[in-house]
């Protein structure tokens, strides 16, 4: 009983780390530009498919696809910002909400068109098997993916705090007009944040492809969960998103364990609603 509970808790922590990495990219975009990117989780799907095709066509293991996924999604994010999102930055609020919905529908269905809606898997990843700690079994790819996610999150955190570009991003997040007055090129910061946010979720896709099913609609649930994480963590707060991601991972698995696995996402959404009722600005906003 306790062994099972411990195993569930570990699972929750591991999936939570993945959620954190996905949500951090989203919260950066939200914080800097005040835009919800509804296509964020479809970028995750693209990352997973890049990893899948590199493996299937060229035999490249997902662990080596990570930089490729990061780079391709960085470029894609930049282009999407430049040609679509930047156009609505000064437009009506609703257009800002809807433009990325269009991108999401387009990308997900382009994937259906190109690769069919089938479920795929990377059959024999380099990392496989389980570690045994007494009664608790830990899947190695899951553990590595989660550790990697934490490492990338920490790297981003250091980048934002220690480098000049990172500080510029944080400055725009705090106050756009003051940052502009200080001579920061806010338009470039926008594009950069969008690209970095997309790149992070691409990396998350490569990690996730090591053990998760790969299919065009995979973004659906991940997307909704990551919106909740971002809002729960608080508007644009990277630390908030990181903690909320882990929290939601744990709540989801424990909720599924104690109540009903079919309701695990409903429990997460309910927790989100209760939290914003009490604290509309999120946990760390």
């Amino acid at each position: 009983m306790t062994g099972q509970l411990l195993a569930q808790l570990m699972n929750g922590l591991l999936i939570g780390c993945m959620y954190s990495l996905i949500a951090i990219g989203l919260t950066m975009i939200w914080g800097v530009m005040n835009i919800i990117n509804f296509a964020h989780a479809d970028f995750l799907m693209i990352g997973m498919f890049i990893s899948f095709w590199l493996y299937t066509l060229y035999g490249v293991d997902p662990i080596f696809s990570i930089p490729v996924c990061g780079a391709v999604l960085f470029l894609l994010g930049w282009l999407i910002y430049r040609y679509l999102v930047s156009k609505v930055m000064t437009g009506p609020g609703l257009a800002q909400l809807v433009v990325t919905f269009g991108i999401s529908i387009f990308i997900a269905n382009a994937a259906v068109f190109l690769w069919s809606p089938d479920f795929r898997m990377i059959e024999k990843p380099l990392l496989a098997g389980t570690w045994n700690f007494g009664t608790v079994q830990l899947s190695i790819p899951k553990a590595i993916a989660s550790l990697g996610s934490v490492a990338v999150s920490v790297a981003l955190f250091l980048f934002l705090r220690k480098t000049k570009t990172g500080k510029a991003i944080l400055a725009v997040e705090m106050n756009r007009s003051s940052a502009l007055l200080m001579g920061i090129n806010t338009e470039r910061v926008n594009a950069l944040s969008f690209a970095i946010g997309s790149s992070l979720v691409g990396i998350a896709g490569a990690f996730l492809s090591m053990y998760y099913y790969i299919y065009p609609q995979v973004g659906g649930t991940f997307g909704l969960i990551s919106f909740c994480i971002v809002a729960l963590g608080g508007f644009g707060s990277i630390e908030g998103a990181f903690l909320a991601g882990i929290l939601i991972g744990v709540v989801q698995t424990l909720g599924g364990y104690f109540f009903d696995p079919a309701y695990k996402y409903a429990i997460v959404f309910a927790m989100y609603l209760v939290t914003v009722w009490i604290r509309p600005q999120g946990l760390m906003g």
Binding site: V85, P92, I103, A108
Partner: peptide, 22 residues
């Protein structure tokens, strides 16, 4: 279910909201 119908639909939404938001 080839997805192409929804592709066109998605493309229209993103283009309209980006270029004709009013």
């Amino acid at each position: 279910g080839s997805g192409i119908d929804m592709m066109i639909y998605g493309a229209l939404i993103m283009l309209i909201s980006a270029y004709r938001p009013q």
